[in-house]
Design a protein around this nucleic acid. Structure first.
Lengths: 128, 128
DNA sequence: CTTGACCTTCCAATCATGGGAAGGTGTAGC
DNA sequence: GCTACACCTTCCCATGATTGGAAGGTCAAG
């Protein structure tokens, strides 16, 4: 299958497939006589793995590490678990930061009349 | 005061002050005879406003809009409140997305032995 | 009058992705 | 066989916010 069909089948855009190949996240696929990239089911499988890892918030570099673990049949599951839990902690930290921002801002907004008058504690507070 | 002192006083790095000026988020300051940027207390005040808006998660573009509202004494507080609440919603959406990722991953990790054996449901699930 | 801390501009890199140009290829219909 | 169109190739550029560094000018203290 060509890159467009692999994109369709994996949920990774053709652009990104080429990019992942360029940065060596995935191996270069076979080529047809005319130079077209040719993908097989295993390649699509790998691409789907990458897409899911990315959708779980892993960076491309982390995704590469996960891929290596995925392909290494002899790795210890403890390695994978450690990486996952470290990532969970990072995700929760980021989520908490965003929620703290939202909380602060919602608090400020609750003190703002929100009518036609110009006085607004939100801006007053940001600019104080 | 020079840019280094303005950076110190505002909490915005000298690099970013120059960048904000370049993209016209803030007005160009006065210049000394030798070409050094010269900042006054109002400039520092503006920079501090920018820093706080950024720390509340507003993009630079949104920060520019807030700055315009801040300087416009005749704006309606409703405009500010609407913008703030829209931003709160976006922040909460992003936080929820991160938490969903964390939850999924924590769930996967809870089913992983995390010992020396190779079988690991985390990778199995990502790659299925 | 030298040293060191500061300033200037310019250029490049980061991370992940998308957009588009210029040109080659594959296939369907006529 | 020719034409149209969808697809492929590589290459360069843009995003958003920030940091890093190089090359060179300025200022103040010793």
């Amino acid at each position: 299958m060509n890159i467009g069909q692999a994109a369709e089948a994996s949920g990774v855009s053709a652009k990104m497939i080429r990019y992942y190949e360029e940065i060596a996240l995935i191996p270069p696929p076979a080529r047809s006589q005319s130079g077209y990239r040719v993908y097989g089911p295993d390649d699509v499988h790998t691409l789907r793995f990458v897409r899911r890892a990315r959708s779980l918030g892993f960076s491309i570099e982390e995704t590469g590490a996960l891929l290596a673990l995925w392909r290494d049949r002899s790795r210890a599951s403890a390695d994978v678990k450690a990486m996952a839990l470290k990532h969970v902690a990072e995700l929760e930290e980021k989520a908490a930061a965003l929620k703290a921002m939202a909380k602060t801002l919602r608090h400020l907004a609750s003190h703002c009349h929100g009518d036609g008058r110009p006085d607004c504690p939100i801006l007053d507070e940001i600019g104080s």
